[in-house]
């Protein structure tokens, strides 16, 4: 990354609440071009909300979100389309269009936004499906006919098919067996290396985080409480991070459960 070029993604003091509930309470985060950042954090801490805010699917109440140095909060019309065109996103629940066969899901952006001819779009969709370990006959099925893990991989293929500059992965490996999880991790690393894509991933799976991250950030109670290179995560000196990566029930993070 050139020192004087703006970061690809820059968040400053971003807040977002739902009614009384403050989910993001001032997030600061910088992601450089072609960098891979992984956000970790407990369930319900607002990781998915963070991604959706950057995509302007959700509107943050305050703060600033800059992509390539340009403010994106409050964009509309053509400018918003250009902004969104840079992104690919894998949703936590895959969010496949159940009225379309798998290959049309994967080729959706190619067919509509990029106006690629149908035949070529189909070939590219099939090739992308193959790269996530799905055969051509899966391409003709409908999403409802797939297992959860297969849906996740189709979602992944859809996110990367149009070769976006920025890709968000919301829990790419949950619901996959360990071998397939590793294949997906490799694929994400490859996306960054080959497409030069900037990626922001969310995961609970530390093995996956270690594999795909350049940097790791931890989200807790609406703030980024720690961030650093992945090599530092094991000796962060932060008790929250330590508790999270070792998955211990006792520590500074208290789960809201009652003892039986």
């Amino acid at each position: 990354m050139l020192e004087n070029s703006p970061p690809k993604i820059e968040l400053t003091a971003v807040t977002k609440s739902f009614g009384e509930k403050e989910v993001l309470r001032g997030i600061d985060l910088k992601i450089g071009k072609a960098e891979s950042v992984v956000v970790i954090g407990g369930s319900g801490t607002g990781k998915s909300v963070l991604l959706k805010s950057i995509l302007s699917i959700m509107q943050p109440e305050s703060g600033s979100i800059k992509i390539d140095g340009e403010e994106t909060i409050g964009l509309s019309g053509q400018k918003r389309d250009v902004h969104l065109n840079k992104f690919g996103m894998l949703f936590q629940g895959a969010a496949l269009f159940d009225s379309l066969p798998v290959w049309q899901n994967v080729a959706f952006k190619l067919l509509r936004a990029h106006q690629v001819p149908r035949k070529e779009a189909k070939d590219r969709a099939m090739a992308t499906l193959a790269s996530v370990g799905l055969s051509a006959d899966v391409g003709e099925l409908f999403p409802a006919e797939l297992s959860g893990g297969m849906q996740k991989r189709v979602g992944l293929a859809r996110a990367i098919a149009a070769r976006p500059e920025i890709i968000f992965f919301d829990e790419p490996t949950t619901g996959l067996d360990p071998i397939m999880a590793d294949v997906i991790n490799e694929l994400i690393v490859k996306c960054v290396r080959e497409l030069g894509a900037t990626t922001l991933s969310i995961t609970h799976d530390m093995a996956s985080a270690r594999k795909i991250a350049d940097r790791i950030a931890m989200l807790h109670e609406g703030h980024i409480i720690w961030e650093g290179p992945k090599s530092d995560v094991d000796h962060s000196g932060n008790p929250y991070v330590d508790q999270f990566i070792h998955g211990r029930a006792d520590g500074p993070i208290k789960m809201q459960v009652r003892k039986i």
């Binding site: 995509l55 699917i57 389309d81 065109n85 996103m89 629940g93 969010a95 269009f97 959706f108 509509r112």
Partner: peptide, 21 residues
């Protein structure tokens, strides 16, 4: 169903305006 399964959000990320589509 498309709303609660995030398919409408997904449309937006695929550069397709949900109002139009």
């Amino acid at each position: 169903t498309m709303r609660v399964t995030e398919q409408i959000d997904a449309l937006t990320t695929l550069s397709t305006n949900p109002y139009k589509y």
